[in-house]
Design a protein around this nucleic acid. Sequence first.
DNA 1: ATCAATAGTATCCATTGGTAACCAGCTACT
DNA 2: AGTAGCTGGTTACCAATGGATACTATTGAT
Lengths: 125, 125
Amino acid sequence: MVTNGTYERGDLFDPNCGTRLILDRIGDKWTALAVLRLQHGPLRFTELRDGIGSVAPKVLTQTLRRLERDGLLTREVFAEVPPRVVYDLTPMGRSLIGPLTAVSDWAEEHINAITTAQGQYDAGS
Amino acid sequence: MVTNGTYERGDLFDPNCGTRLILDRIGDKWTALAVLRLQHGPLRFTELRDGIGSVAPKVLTQTLRRLERDGLLTREVFAEVPPRVVYDLTPMGRSLIGPLTAVSDWAEEHINAITTAQGQYDAGS
DNA sequence: ATCAATAGTATCCATTGGTAACCAGCTACT
DNA sequence: AGTAGCTGGTTACCAATGGATACTATTGAT
C-alpha cells in the first residue's frame, strides 16, 4: 500500500493483484510440477501421472483442468481405443518455465542449507 | 526419471528432491508474500500483518516460524512493554527474492491474458 | 481500577488434498 | 460367451490444512 491510499503494480496488499492470484494458482501442490514436466514436449495423462511422485488421478485432473482454463496448456482428445489424451503447454505456459526454473534452481542450490537450519532449530528448542 | 532407473538433479519424480520440498514450502499461501514484503528491510509483526491482505495472526505466526526454522529469516524479541518483535531476512532468505520476483513479474505480465482465458473457457462450457 | 498496545493463542469451522473404489468404451484372449 | 485389461477419468468419503473470531499476557498510562 502506498501512503496516499492508492495501489500500484506489485502491491502485495491487494488480494487481487496478479502476484497473489498467480501464487495462489501455481502455489498449489502439483501445478508447478506439471508445468515443469511438460517443458520438453507434450505428454499423455498417464505419462504425467507416472512422471510425478504419486498424484491421485482426481487431483491431477483438477490441476490440468485449471491449467487449461488459465490458457497455460491444451488438452487434445483422440477418439481412439483405448482413448488417448495429450496435454501440451501453450506459448504462455511455456513462458512460465523460466521463472519456475529460477525457483527450482534456487531450491536445488539451498536445500542442504535449509535442511541443516531445520536440524539446528529443532535441536535448540 | 531417467530410463536407466537412476535419479538426477531436478528429478521431479522424487518427492524428496529439493524442488519439491521448496515448492511445498514456499507454495503455501503466505510464505512468498512474507519474503517479498521483507525485501526492503526488517518489519514488526503488526507491520507484516497489516501489509499483507488479511492474514489471520495464527497463520502469519505459523508462516514466520517455518521461515525461521528454514533459516530464511531471523526473529528478534525486544523485552519491552509493549513487546516488540522484529523479523528480518537472512542472506539466504534474501537470495530467494530474485527467483520470487521472476515469478511475480511473470504474474503481473500475464494476469490479464489469464483472466481472459478463464472467461473464454467458462463461456465455452 | 481500568484501558490501551503488541504479539501472539485457543477454539472452532470451511476448504482443499488424498484414498480407494468404480465406470465407459472397446479389444483381445480363452 | 465370458472375462480381463487398457486409458482416462469420476464418485464418495476422510484427513489435513487454512481461516475467522475471540481471548490472553504484560505493564505503563489515566
